[in-house]
Nucleic acid binder design. Structure first.
Length: 465
RNA sequence: GGGGCCGUAGGGUAGCCUGGUGAUCCUGCCGGCUUGGGGUGCCGGUGACCCAGGUUCAAAUCCUGGCGGCCCCA
C-alpha cells in the first residue's frame, strides 16, 4: 500500500493515526488533531534546542505585513507576488494600507531589526521564530507537503558584519540542519539550487532534499545567503570600529511542516506510523491482558511496571476493558508507539514481561529484573535501525548516470553538469524532471552531459514534489 | 500552465449511463449479552445523496456555476 499507492496511504495514515483532519473545507488548510500536536511538539522541542545551542534567540513577529514593507526588495516581491493573501478590509472599511498575510517573514522582521542594530557590537544577531505562513498555492495542495497555511515555519534570520561571516553562518546552518535531521533519522542530500530556483532575493540557496517512498524528492529545508540584498532596501546598517557605516550581511533558513510529512512517509509502514522514541508522544504503552480470574494479579504487575518506568519514559497504560488485546495492538501500532509491553497471566506466573518493538515487529520475553536494561538498549537500537533503514533507502535510490537518455524518474539521478543555466534548463526540458542543484559535498571529474565541457561538478536531477 | 476523473452516513462503497421501489453493502458509533495472548461473536439501534441555480409532473441520477478532492502531461 505504501509502495503501490503512496498518496492514498499517506492520507489514510494522517486520519487513522490521528494526526490531521483533512476535511477542513478550504483548499490547502488542515486541522491538527491532539496526537498530531503531540508529535509536532516533540519535533519543535528538538529544533528549538539545537537553534538555542547555536546562539539563536526566539522572537515573534506579527502575521500581517504592510504592503510597502513587502514591496521593498524587488526580486523578493516578484517571487512571491502571486502567492500572497491580502487583508484589504477592516470590518466594512477599506484599509488605506493593504496588509499581507506573511508568505515568509523577511519583510516583517528586517525593518524592525534595522532599528535594533547600531554598532558592530550588536553583531552577529541570530534570531528565529516558529510561526504559520500563508501561500496561495495554485498547484494541487497536499497535507503537510504543499500547504496554503504552513503551520510551523521554523525560520531563522541572522545578521553579520562581513560577507565571510555570513558564509560561515551558512555553513553553521548546514551543520544545524544535519544535526536536526540526524536526530529524527531523516536522510538527506544537500544541494545548491540552480540560479533560477533560488529564494527570491537571495544570492544563492542551499537545500536539503530527501526522497519519498514513491521515488520523488522532497525539499525539507532551505538555507539562503542574502548578502546585502535586503539590508540595502531595508537600511540595516551598523557602525564599524573605524566609524564608517556599512550594510549588514544576512542569511536566513527555514524548515516547514514537511518535517512531519517526512517522519510519517519515510519511517511508516502499512500498519501505520513508526515513531522514534524521541518524537513519540508515548515511548512505551503497557497493555494488560485481562482475564476474569487473573484480573487483579495482572493489573498489579502492570501498575508496578508502570511506576517503575514512569520517571524514565513517556509511558501510557491502556486499561480499556471494552477493547480486546488484539484490537489494542493494532491501535497502538497505527500510532507508531516504539515499544509495547504486554502483561498477561502467563507473564506474571513466569516472572517475565512480553516486549514488542514496532519498527521490527518483533516480540520477546524478558525477565522482570532485565527489563530496564533491555528497554534502554532497545530504545537506542530502534533509533539506529530506523536511521539505517532510511539512509539505505535513500542510497539505493540515488543513481550515477552518464547519458541523458538514462536519466530515470523515481530516482535521484547524479550527473556531471558544468553549471551553466542553459545546460541545466536543457536537462529539465529534455527529461521533464527537476534539477535539484549541485551536490555541495561531492565532486567527480567528468564532462558536462549537455555542452561536454570539463567539470568536476555533480548535479542531482529528480522528479520532485 | 494544459488535460482528464470524481464528490452518496464518521470512513470506504452500490445505485447515475437509460430520471420514478423504503438509497446498497462493509466499517465505525450507541445499547445489551458474549468474548478477551493479534481486529470475538450475536441481537438491537444511529447515521448520507457537497452548495446554488436550471430542465422536468418527478433529480443522487441530466445541464450550468461555485466549493472541495484525485490523476496525468509540460
Amino acid at each position: 500500500m505504501k509502495r503501490e499507492n503512496f498518496s492514498e496511504w499517506f492520507n489514510q495514515i494522517l486520519e487513522k493515526a490521528g494526526i490531521l483532519d483533512i476535511r477542513y473545507p478550504v483548499k490547502g488548510l488542515y486541522v491538527w488533531l491532539p496526537y498530531g500536536m503531540k508529535i509536532r511538539e516533540c519535533v519543535i522541542k528538538i529544533i528549538k534546542e539545537i537553534l538555542e545551542n547555536h546562539g539563536h534567540e526566539e522572537v515573534l513577529f506579527p502575521l500581517l505585513i504592510p504592503e510597502d514593507f513587502l514591496r521593498k526588495e524587488s526580486e523578493h516581491i516578484r517571487g512571491f507576488e502571486e502567492q500572497v493573501y491580502w487583508v484589504t478590509r477592516g470590518g466594512s472599511k477599506e484599509l488605506n494600507v493593504k496588509l499581507a498575510l506573511r508568505p515568509t517573514s523577511e519583510t516583517a522582521i528586517y525593518p524592525i531589526v534595522s532599528l535594533w542594530i547600531k554598532s558592530h557590537k550588536d553583531l552577529p544577531l541570530k534570531i528565529y521564530q516558529i510561526v504559520n505562513v500563508f501561500r496561495y498555492e495554485t498547484k494541487h495542495t497536499r497535507p503537510l507537503i504543499r500547504l496554503r497555511e504552513i503551520t510551523t515555519f521554523k525560520e531563522a534570520h541572522t545578521f553579520h558584519r562581513t560577507f565571510e561571516e555570513a558564509e560561515a553562518q551558512v555553513k553553521e546552518a548546514i551543520e544545524i540542519y544535519k544535526k536536526f535531521f540526524d536526530r529524527i533519522a531523516i536522510p538527506y542530500l544537500i544541494n545548491k539550487r540552480p540560479d533560477w530556483d533560488k529564494f527570491p532575493g537571495a544570492i544563492y540557496t542551499i537545500a536539503f532534499d530527501t526522497i519519498f517512498p514513491d521515488g520523488k524528492s522532497l525539499q525539507i529545508a532551505t538555507i539562503h545567503n542574502l548578502g546585502q540584498n535586503f539590508s540595502k532596501p531595508f537600511n540595516i546598517k551598523y557602525e564599524k570600529v573605524d566609524g564608517n557605516f556599512e550594510y549588514v550581511y544576512q542569511t536566513c533558513y527555514g524548515i516547514s511542516d514537511r518535517v512531519i510529512a517526512s517522519i510519517i512517509a519515510i519511517h511508516g509502514d502499512d500498519r501505520g506510523l513508526i515513531l522514534l522514541p524521541e518524537i513519540s508522544p508515548y515511548q512505551i504503552v503497557i497493555i494488560p491482558i485481562i482475564y476474569k480470574e487473573s484480573r487483579q494479579k495482572v493489573l498489579n504487575k502492570a501498575w508496578k511496571i508502570y511506576n517503575l518506568l514512569k520517571e524514565k519514559y513517556k509511558i501510557y497504560i491502556d486499561l480499556r476493558e471494552d477493547e480486546t488485546p488484539g484490537s489494542k495492538f493494532y491501535y497502538w501500532e497505527m500510532k507508531g508507539i516504539p515499544i509495547r509491553i504486554e502483561i498477561g497471566p502467563r507473564d506474571v506466573d513466569e516472572g517475565v514481561v512480553t516486549i514488542f518493538r514496532r519498527d521490527k515487529m518483533e516480540r520477546i520475553k524478558v525477565r522482570d529484573e532485565d527489563l530496564e536494561n533491555t528497554l534502554k538498549d532497545m530504545m537506542n537500537d530502534i533509533y539506529k535501525n530506523l536511521r539505517e533503514r532510511a539512509w539505505k533507502f535513500l542510497e539505493e535510490n540515488v543513481v550515477r548516470i552518464f547519458r541523458i537518455e538514462d536519466i530515470r524518474e523515481g530516482y535521484i539521478n547524479e550527473i556531471s553538469l558544468c553549471g551553466k543555466d542553459s545546460c541545466g534548463r536543457y536537462i529539465e526540458e529534455k527529461t521533464g524532471l527537476r534539477v535539484l542543484g549541485e551536490a555541495i559535498e561531492k565532486k567527480e571529474d567528468g564532462y558536462c552531459l549537455v555542452c561536454k565541457e570539463r567539470t568536476d561538478k555533480i548535479y542531482r536531477v529528480a522528479k520532485s514534489y
